[in-house]
Simulated assay, not measured.
Amino acid sequence: MLGVGKKHGCAAQEIMNANPRVQLWKMQTGDTFYVPAGNKCTFNQLTIILLHAPRLSHLHCVNIIESKDHSKSELMIKLHSLTHLTMTLYNLEFDDFEEFLLKLCSPLQLFDAKIKSRDRSYLNADRWERFISQNMTSLIRFTFRYSDIIDDEFELTFYHSLINRFTSSFSIDRKWFFKLFIEENELIYSIRQYQETWIDFQEYLHINQNTKNNINDSLNPYFPVVELSIIRTCLTENDEPLINKINFIFNMIKVTYLDIECDQMTVSMLITILHSLINLNSITLSNSALCQQMDLSIRDKIIFNAFLNTNKISKITLQNVTENDQIESIFKYFPRIHFLDYNV
């Protein structure tokens, strides 16, 4: 049932009467609002609620949708205590989201936005930088996730050419790490706080034996800039045209770290992806075909040999690799290895 504190009950009830599917839950600790995933809410409805919650500090809304009523509220929401904002948006344009954020007048410190929308302007990194610099001056942690559907209709746009700006000094200085996911049929663009790995730490110690700089120092030339993670995706030769489409993105943002957790990927597809990542220097393999005896076609042998002759991979993490001959295969393919992390 609906759980609402007395201070916010009136506003919540009005919205409930207008739309029974919208429920507002009041968490038991602190002034936190949480709109559950099974309930939909528009910005106009949320604005009415927030006007009655001036001391709100944490706001979680996981199903914000486009309003059928295109009229927009002109009310300003002065939430001077709001420091944590988490939102998931569906089919909303960046202009509408930006307008809502401007109304908050809040000293946000943590901002988490997950977006599923056809509006590719969310990928305009320069626009995000301007907005944050001018309107979120207290922001410390920024988490961003935008999903692109990879299908036959997928096409690159002008905004895709701007995503390399997510790796600018503005982001690196704040330890905001850009990452790409290929997950099932989605290409996901993500920003999260940087977390060093074991290999990063070992290399840092090797390079900086005589210094005491912080490991997260953005001046460290081994700070990993862009990661590509391929998860639960059954990629076959039939998907090669799609990979060729997004190959432009791989090269433009200079993917340096690859994490593959996909034992169903064909050898040919894996070789195609490796060959396309010309800036790769680190890789994590889990149950990978590279750890097994490979029966390659002539075409794949040519591509794979070209990759082996030019690759710069020096840091490897192995997951679920147990046989000695599997490890020997990795050393044969990647003779430049300096750092190896081995997890069974």
Rank of each mutant, 00 (worst) to 15 (best):
S268E: 14
F248Q: 12
N324I: 04
I249N: 04
N247P: 00
I249D: 03
E240I: 15
N311Y: 06
L280G: 06
L280Y: 08
K301L: 04
L274E: 04
L280A: 05
A289M: 09
T236F: 02
T322W: 13
L318P: 14
N251C: 11
S268A: 11
L277T: 09
S286D: 14
L258T: 03
L280C: 08
L285C: 02
H275C: 10
D263R: 12
D239P: 03
R299Q: 14
F307A: 08
L318G: 12
S288N: 13
I253L: 03
N238S: 13
N311A: 07
E237R: 13
F307S: 10
I313L: 10
D295G: 01
N309R: 12
N287W: 10
V267C: 13
C291S: 15
N251W: 02
E237N: 13
I313S: 08
K312A: 09
F250C: 08
C262G: 05
K254V: 01
L258K: 10
A306C: 11
S288D: 06
N238L: 11
A289V: 07
V255R: 07
K245Q: 13
F250D: 10
N324R: 12
L285E: 02
F307T: 12
C291R: 01
E323C: 06
C262V: 04
I271L: 07
F304G: 07
P241V: 06
E237M: 07
I271D: 06
D263W: 08
N324G: 00
C291F: 01
D263A: 11
I253Q: 03
N247G: 10
D263T: 04
S288A: 06
S297R: 09
C262F: 01
M252W: 00
E240V: 11
I253P: 12
S286T: 06
I302K: 12
N279R: 02
K315T: 00
Q264V: 01
I313G: 08
D239S: 11
F307M: 09
M265I: 06
T284I: 04
I283H: 08
T317S: 15
I316N: 03
N244K: 15
I302L: 05
P241H: 05
K245I: 15
V267R: 02
K245W: 03
T284P: 00
L270C: 10
L242C: 04
I313Y: 09
S288W: 01
S268Y: 05
N324P: 14
N281W: 13
N311H: 15
N238K: 15
T322A: 08
T310R: 15
Y257T: 14
M294F: 06
K254G: 08
N238D: 14
N247F: 01
L308F: 06
I302Y: 07
L296S: 09
L296M: 15
